[in-house]
Design a protein around this nucleic acid. Structure first.
Lengths: 336, 336
DNA sequence: TTGAAAGCGCTAACAC
DNA sequence: GTGTTAGCGCTTTCAA
């Protein structure tokens, strides 16, 4: 019922604890004969090294890194997590995953818990506003890397997608296909969507000399249905847009629903999603690669763990335009 | 640089360690005055309880449970993980996630590592064949629950989807829409797909009195492209099927590609996937709910952790038929 | 090549 | 109310 310890193995093998320790950790300096005896005792008792106790030795950190995400169900974050796990494993670290379901209080609590477990480092997709209480931990050597958005109140490494550039790319693409009335449906305010809106405004100014504010729809809540409604409202305008830019994946979904299976309105979404190429009208998107985001973030973290003392930096992942059809539809006026 | 310990706090506050411990853990029996002093000292030193050391006390287990998945990138497993994390959090446990990318060796190694960390329990989506070496751990009180497939060589709780029933349901549905030549594309052999094939055969026997073996296509590899090729081969038969049953999500994807945007062949897939309702022809599927799978599995595990000594059981989650269009297309012969 | 003892940061069990 | 002592299972001295 109770697990065997090193002492148990030592007793069975008739040797000292340290000898068992040496065998278990393959620390040479053990005669073949004793090693055999110890190995037999290990097999007999079913002993397994206790990693918890092991990591208690003098001020040592654990071999865990903590990863905090809003929602694993979002394929974007699932890919980030998958990449982080892969890189961590290659460094011999394990990932303790918490998801906070977008509740800032729960998120901070989860972070505290992770830190209490002496994680070697922390990667966070920030959902809360203020991370200043982590400053002491960072100062004492637990690196923190923010993913996908900056973490307020704490100077730390960040890895983000160039949202404004992506938005500009989307607008320019639509303009190059003849569109001039380009609407935007913006998900509830978060850093990324604000950046995307900024990029949209910049590109509209540069390419078309101005923005028609009535074509900007900012959602109050974040559901697919809300996005669908917003799209319908835009399309019901006296002079409706001929193209719409959707700032996030779920907004894109809402727009697809609103536009129906035979759109005559062009659509470019931000963030790629599964099956985008199999829809009735395949969806053109600009998207940053979540695997790249996770991989870079993990590399930055392990650089710190390995001792890097560089100034905290912001790494920027460039999004790419993925052309599939919905973004290349001509303006209605020019049709046929 | 080095973290403050309870002893440090005790010294600053001018009290004994146990008093600090009491304050930190809110164990009453501390005068308001001392509590104040201790709290001040905690704030001053930036002390945080060391959970690792805490969990070392006599034979205690950690408050972690381990979760092992093949691939987080698969939305099905991401949902399972999300549900497991949610249930675990409600029990006050944290989830240590490992993904093994379908490599059985890596999987067993990851499991060993998890056990070495004294996890309170383990949930595994089995990718390996033989789990008998976990028997001692189970006997010594670390419960293991297998998810989505049985784990060979180990008697433990299992939570699976009723694959055969789902397949029968799919076939009956197609038959009820007039189909008689119903093909099947089977993903490379795993327990679940074998069960689905079995269900298909049973239903074909019962409903139509037999199976035409030429309509059964078993894939060698597991890519979308392979599934696409297999579908084309089936459709190129002299007397091709009028309907096809796809045994997994990616096979369904391949079939969607092969059938093109205007199918005249009916399709029912196993496992739901995002956007299935937004495709050119919305896809009818039979699917078990991954959240239910994860939730039930976690409940079973925490029952064990709470001390349940019931016989290991197999919980079965019933799949549901989700009607969307592709499965209700009539046979070609009857068209127009 | 081997082993005994000290200690990691904490809490359980007893004192005071 | 509060403090002291003795471990948890391991690794790190330092001897033998």
């Amino acid at each position: 019922m109770t697990r065997p310890t090193m002492a148990d193995v030592a007793e069975v093998a008739g040797v000292g604890m340290k000898t068992v320790s040496r065998v278990v950790n393959g620390e040479g300096k053990v005669s073949a004969a004793t090693r055999q005896r110890v190995e037999a005792a290990i097999a007999e008792t079913g002993y397994r090294r206790n990693e918890i106790a092991r990591s208690m030795r003098a001020g040592q950190r654990s071999m865990d890194i903590g990863l905090l995400l809003g929602d694993l169900t979002n394929p974007f974050f699932a890919s980030v997590a998958s990449a982080v796990i892969a890189v961590s494993r290659s460094w011999g670290y394990r990932v303790v995953l918490s998801s906070a379901d977008e509740d800032p209080e729960a998120e901070l609590a989860a972070i505290e818990a992770l830190l209490g477990r002496q994680v070697a480092g922390l990667m966070v997709v920030p959902g809360a506003e203020d991370y200043s209480r982590l400053q002491t931990d960072v100062d004492r050597g637990t690196p923190v890397v923010f993913i996908d958005r900056p973490g307020g109140g704490l100077v730390a490494d960040e890895v983000v997608i160039d949202n404004a550039a992506g938005a500009r790319m989307a607008v320019r693409h639509l303009v190059s296909h003849g569109h001039e009335r380009i609407g935007i449906v913006v998900a509830p305010s978060r850093w990324a969507t604000a950046e995307r809106l900024r990029g949209y405004r910049e590109a509209m100014e540069n390419e078309l000399g101005g923005v028609d504010e009535s074509l900007i729809s900012i959602l109050g809540h974040g559901s697919v249905v809300d996005a669908e409604d917003a799209a319908r409202t835009l399309l019901a305008l006296p002079d409706p847009p001929t193209a719409i830019f959707a700032t996030t994946g779920f907004v894109t979904q809402g727009l697809v629903r609103a536009l129906g299976s035979s759109h005559d309105t062009a659509l470019v979404g931000f963030d790629d999603f599964p099956m985008a190429d199999l829809l009735a009208v395949p969806i053109t998107v600009v998207a940053g690669d979540p695997r790249e985001l996770g991989t870079v973030a993990a590399q930055v973290l392990f650089d710190r763990i390995a001792g890097s003392r560089d100034e905290p930096s912001r790494r920027i992942v460039q999004p790419r335009l993925i052309i599939r059809g919905s973004g290349e539809l001509p303006p209605r006026g020019r049709r046929r």
